[in-house]
Structures are given as C-alpha cells and as structure tokens.
Amino acid sequence: MENAQKCPVCGVSIVNDKVFFSSGSTGTLARLQARVCQFAKQPGCINTDEDKIGEVTAVDGYLKP
C-alpha cells in the first residue's frame, strides 16, 4: 500500500490519512485522536501532527446515549 503506516501503539493502519480501525468503518485522523490517541498517550504513536489531525469535533468521539 502506498503511504501506509501501522501504529505500534494501537495497531491501526493509516493510508493517505485514512484510518482503518480493527473493526467498523474507516475514519479520519481526528476520529482516531478522539477515540484512541488521547487515551493511549504512549511513545511511538504516529498520530501526533496536530496540523494533519485537524479539528476534533463531537461526531469524532463516541456519542453518549
């Protein structure tokens, strides 16, 4: 895959800024930040460039019932 990366922390695959989670639909770097990275906070995370992540919105996180 062109421009493919795999995060050693959470195991997601990122191809051209499209995130492939282990289950469910694909997402964005902002969605990855909202759902995983902000909690994992471990060295080696590949989703750290705030300019690429962009704005994290309410729809990026898990919706509370």
Score class of each variant (00 low, 15 high):
I53M: 03
Y62S: 02
G54I: 01
V19C: 15
K18H: 11
E55K: 15
T28D: 07
C45G: 03
V59S: 14
F21I: 09
F20R: 11
G27S: 11
T28A: 03
V19I: 12
V15Q: 15
I46L: 07
N47V: 06
N3P: 00
T57G: 05
V36L: 08
E2D: 09
S25W: 12
L29N: 01
V9A: 06
Q42G: 05
K41I: 04
P43A: 03
P8R: 15
M1W: 12
D51R: 13
P43V: 07
E50V: 13
C45D: 06
G24C: 09
A4L: 12
N16C: 04
G44P: 03
V15K: 14
D51H: 12
V56K: 13
F21M: 13
D17I: 06
V19E: 00
D49C: 08
S13E: 15
A30K: 02
G54N: 10
S22A: 15
F21S: 12
V9C: 08
D17Y: 14
G44W: 03
F21A: 10
Q5E: 12
N47L: 02
G27T: 08
S22F: 15
D51S: 06
A40Y: 09
S22R: 12
L32D: 00
D49I: 07
S25V: 10
T26C: 11
F39G: 02
N3Y: 08
R35C: 11
N16A: 06
G24R: 05
C45W: 04
F20P: 01
D60Y: 10
R35D: 04
C37T: 09
V36C: 10
Q42L: 11
Q5A: 07
F20Y: 14
F39I: 05
G11L: 09
K6P: 00
R35P: 01
S13H: 13
Y62L: 08
C10L: 03
G44I: 08
Q38K: 14
I14H: 00
N16M: 06
Q33W: 09
C7P: 02
G61T: 02
T48H: 06
K52T: 08
G44V: 08
A58K: 15
E55L: 07
S13G: 08
